[in-house]
Amino acid sequence: MNIDTVKERAGPREFSPADELPREYREAATRMIEFHANSEIMGAYLERPFIRQAPSIDRKLAFSAKVQDEIGHGQLLYRAAESLGVKTREEMLDDLANGDGKFLNCFHYPMESWVETPMIAFFVDGAAMRRQATLRRTSWEPYAHAMDKVCFEEGFHVKHGEDILKELMSGSKKEQQMTQEAFEEWWPRIIQFFGPTDDKSTHHDFAASVGLKQQSNDDLRNAFLDQYIPKARKYGLEIPDEPRIRERDDGTYAVEEDDLNWDEFFTIAKNEFEPGLGQINGRKTAQEAVDWVRETIENDASAAGGHAPQAAD
């Protein structure tokens, strides 16, 4: 299939491993899904300490399950990416450890306190939900299929995040204040989740033309703000003055781009932001510490004739 045919046929769940697709399509899809998978892993890395720090057994259980879900999503997505035949899961995980794998801007920031957990679990996951819902109609069928399960579980995460936010904002004065401060710190990053405006986005045109991407950054950002500004207010959060957000006559939002720190955003995009690097390397160190186990399994597998035994997983 040549690229013109791909563009012509591009529709929801149109292409599967049975199709012979041009390298350009397969690389673009791999880049997009790998980014998504990496983000699941790095999000889990960021939230993991809060399993322990959760203020009750029920919250602990929910957090452990959430982190587990994110790893499960990573597993699914790497499989969907692998099926494009460009990179193996091992290569993608190695790239992530080496600092070559890219992932969501929000997961490059450190998270230190429980009051920050709804910033991820409610706002960032809520933002991700918007995007993921549209990806159920992406043209790469295995990706769309993975999104069915991811969206289903992500719905619970957002509800849990919302419940934590609600609890904090109806708690003591101190809790409310700490939560507001966390919100002010995270709000610009959350808006940047959707990337720069469409005219500045580099990958959008091609990904949209072959049906990988279903909605533009601007549309997604609008839909998110439309839904989440009222929710934030409902729980008593004050929307920070910056970035300035103006509601247009047609109900859409204009974000003052100059109020956002794009230098930081693009430093993050290159994996050169200091806190993010710390998180990449922290995960790498943890993975290196269990290299010996993977080697043992591999030896085991090659001794058994190259078939990796599944039983112990």
Binding site: Y45, I57, K60
Partner: peptide, 27 residues
């Protein structure tokens, strides 16, 4: 739970998380 996001493979990560949640449930 310390092994979550630190286990040798994604599969063993999921398995140990399961055990942790089972034990928490028993607690």
């Amino acid at each position: 739970t310390e092994w979550q996001v630190r286990a040798p493979t994604l599969e063993s990560d999921l398995a140990l998380a399961n055990n942790a949640q089972d034990e928490l449930g028993h607690a």
